[in-house]
């Protein structure tokens, strides 16, 4: 009985489950032939550049074990860079290098990394350790984003990003994803990152979610998560909305970062974005998706779709008051 009441409440809250997401949205709106362009990050990058969507600069691509030594040339003059598998999923296999220490590299968490370890990581990527189905993969090296200081206090190592869920071209829900010590510098929620709901209309963050549980403070720094204003909010929404036009995918997760110098950059696209965004926002997805379904035909261009998202989609309830009792000094 408990279970049934629980079930009814979830239904009333319009929560979308994995089965419904896959059957009603992913399978229905994402044509299989269009998936390779988002499954391969290199393809996504190329596509975005063709359409004038800014992305982090590509330093080079490594396709075979024999080419691993080319890495040294790619990063010769660089202080920092990121190595990624082209077909990695869920943030697996991403290595962030933030500097040099006496002839060695320094990882995002400050640990030393010698070139042998870097080579081994690259060969693991190439042999398909991080790709779906273990197929041989390519690795690429790109610029490490110097992220906007707005999230400085909320981040321990790694790059925070903004995930916007775009349904039929309309931004339907959004969150900030913050890396934590546990998530090892990655912003992916299933690795222990923190997700912060964002009120679409204002671009202000709300309470967060960590391991599927609501949190009000950053688990590492204890900084309050509420009420942070995401800079360039409308630009981010525009970029997300345009990704629908370039990919043709109706149900799309758009991951972006805010670079200190270059502004919003597109990181990657996801054709089956996770559902924890609902917990981060404290509301179910169904009402927004249904509203978009009712009006999708009328919204002809990205600007109209962003306006719709700003004005017509469900507002988040005012964030819960920040706790006032003093935190213990760390």
């Amino acid at each position: 009985m408990m279970l049934l009441r629980h079930l009814r409440r979830l239904r009333e809250a319009g929560v979308l489950g994995v089965n419904a997401r896959n059957a009603d949205y992913v399978l229905a709106h994402n044509e299989r032939a269009r998936l390779p362009q988002v499954n391969c990050k290199l393809a996504t990058k190329k596509l975005a550049e063709q359409h004038g969507i800014p992305v982090p600069a590509l330093f080079g691509t490594i396709a075979m074990n024999g080419e691993i030594r080319r890495l040294a040339r790619f990063v010769e003059k660089r202080e920092s860079f990121v190595v990624k598998p082209a077909q990695g999923a869920g943030g697996d296999g991403i290595l962030v290098v933030t500097g040099r220490v006496n002839g060695h590299w320094r990882r995002h968490d400050g640990l030393r990394l010698d070139s042998g370890e870097l080579d081994f990581h690259l060969s693991n990527i190439l042999s398909g350790m991080y790709s779906l189905g273990g197929r041989p993969d390519r690795a690429f090296v790109e610029a490490c984003v110097k992220f906007d200081p707005v999230f400085d206090e909320l981040t321990t190592g790694g790059v925070p990003d903004v995930r916007v869920l775009v349904y039929r071209g309309v931004p339907a829900m959004a969150m900030v994803r913050l890396p934590t010590r546990e998530s090892d510098g990655k912003a992916n929620l299933h690795k222990g990152g923190v997700g912060l709901g964002i009120d679409l209309a204002t671009g202000r963050t709300r309470n967060g979610v960590c391991h599927d549980q609501a949190v009000e403070e950053h688990p590492d720094s204890g900084a309050p998560l509420n009420g942070v204003l995401v800079p360039c909010w409308e630009d981010l929404l525009h970029m997300a909305a345009r990704c629908y036009d370039i990919t043709g995918l109706g149900y799309l997760g758009v991951d972006m970062v805010l670079d200190r110098e270059h502004g919003p950059l597109l990181l990657e696209l996801n054709a089956r974005p996770g559902l924890a965004i609902q917990i981060a926002n404290g509301i179910g997805l169904r009402s927004a998706l249904a509203r978009i379904d009712r009006h999708a035909e009328e919204l002809k261009n990205p600007a109209a779709r962003v306006d719709f998202a700003l004005d017509r989609l469900p507002r988040l309830e005012p964030a819960a008051p920040i706790r006032l009792e003093p935190r213990q000094a760390a």
């Binding site: 279970l3 629980h6 079930l7 409440r9 979830l10 809250a13 929560v15 489950g17 994995v18 089965n19 419904a20 059957a23 009603d24 979610v209 599927d212 549980q213 609501a214 609902q278 917990i279 404290g282 509301i283 179910g284």
Partner: peptide, 15 residues
């Protein structure tokens, strides 16, 4: 397309 049983737990905050 209904919920999975574990999702009742996962989305408990929303319920």
């Amino acid at each position: 397309t209904g919920f999975r049983l574990v999702e009742l737990w996962r989305f408990r905050d929303l319920a």
